[in-house]
Nucleic acid binder design. Sequence first.
RNA 1: ACCCCCGUAGCUCAGUGGAUAGAGCACCGGCCUCCGGAGCCGGGAGCAUGGGUUCGAGUCCCGUCGGGGGUGCCA
Length: 559
Amino acid sequence: MKRAHLHLEQALTSALHEIGVTEAKVILERPRDPEHGDIATNAAMVNAKGANMQPRKLAETILEKLKVDSSLIVPVGVAGPGFINFRFADHYLQSIATLAVEQASAFGQSETLKGQRVQIEFVSANPTGPLNVVSARAAAVGDSLSRIFRLLGAQCDREFYVNDAGNQVELLGQSYFCRYLETQGIAAEIPEGGYRGEYIAEIARKLAADKDSEELRKAIKIVDKPWKANVFGESVISWLGRRAMDEFISRHERSLEHFRVHMERWFRESELREAKAEWNALTELEKRGAIFQQEGAKFVRTSEYGDGQDWVVVTSQGRPTYFLPDIAYHLTKFRRGYDLIIDILGPDHHSYLTKMGAAMSALGEDAKKLEILLLQHINLLRDGEPVKMSKRAGQIIEMDELVEEVGVDAARYFFLMRKTTTPLDFDIELAKRHSDDNPVFYVQYAHARIESIFRRAGIEEPSESSHVELLTHPEELKLLRRLRELTDVCAECATTRDPHAMTVWLREVATQFHRFYHHCRVIGDSAELQAARLTLCRATQVALRTGLDLCGVSAPKEM
RNA sequence: ACCCCCGUAGCUCAGUGGAUAGAGCACCGGCCUCCGGAGCCGGGAGCAUGGGUUCGAGUCCCGUCGGGGGUGCCA
């Protein structure tokens, strides 16, 4: 799909050669104002010195020497300080419609990232409660990004890192136990730093109704201090902690699958710990001289590898900080051979990039492969009024609640509508509204409307001999230009690591389709023109469906 | 104290170093005997501020002001 650009670039280079510029610099750009054409080049300005000519004069000379295939590109002249402008040939644009229909779901695919192995880690919420809306944004962004990377030919794995080890298991077990005791009519105080969410009480009530509850009741009775009880051969606290975590992990998986997000791997911290991976990482760091002791604690010399300070990896009590297993975990990513490793984290982890990057450098890895994407927070609104959320009081809005209320389509689309670097205002009432101020429905409506045109025409597929050369109306050509942009937009999303541009493009395609629809009658008296326009309609549908699918949003045939 | 993100139209936001800075919402006025009016057409206003780099800066660098978030052997 890039053939027009490639062709023009080569033609400009050889024209410059002919003029006598040996080291020709050719950059193609897109004029901001469509009046200036589809492609512009500043070649005459940049190469003016090399040619020893005034920019405008050089531009004229280039145009004289330039040989371009007029079925692809048409020069429109010199403008401003020396820009040379070009337009896509109608023939080229018309061929896009045919191409899209032929390629169908493969439209937009490319091999730009072929051979690249990419890993994206996202959500990775602690298994101490249900997923909340913050995770939902990460899920939408991470999953769409991976879909885009795949369309561009990369292999991309999605991964969830499960923090199922460390003292939060204990803490969760204690909180769970307290709630369980309450169901047995025994008063209990949730410990400092414990989990107070209603969802713990919920699973405790479930447990009380479970057959394992019998065993638990017996165990509690024999000991005077219920905390010291053992059940199924281990302490009641750790048994409960693991049980609660497993429950939450499978709930996370269900929530994500329902949100159309499938993780290739759920990487458990407990596996790392069992293999002593954190201590192996420490040994490796020590071997490389990257560890020093101070006041009984062990520090990693991250400051020597680009971070602002050194960080504790083992406390003076001899316990690893969370950073050590994290290092071990990231080391596995590098050792698994990925070319690009992306972590999507919340804005509170902004120290992570230099810190983890430095640790990886200290271990001899190429830290440039690791990228940390800091996803900004979301503010939930209802008709413009903020929805109060307090994690401490356990009043979080669950991802499932939000998705149930607004639907997967609206939720995923809304989460992508802002750049990842911008905090997102999510208005629940707006997302639910089926009206023209809701962008999701605007885009989906365009797709459904096309389907209805085919129904109305009584035709399933556009005919093969579909005279696309008849697509010459300005609105038709503008629509074709939009469809051509799909590969550009995908490439942009991949480079910026942000699917947001896809939602902007989708809206533009939908807008241009509605304009075309208004100005050009599809079902008409000329069979040839009808065939050509049906082809354009199908091509638009293909493009919309691809874009929506990359966002994880459905493309309905009727609404 | 330090660190990160952000200041563009009344509101929410686009804007790969290039030409006269764009959309949506809201507001006003038009358009259905016509393929889905969940649509189309028309109408106004703006780059927080001071420097610097450049032939050229909303975009890159430094300062100031304003908003949001975070941090000091907790995860």
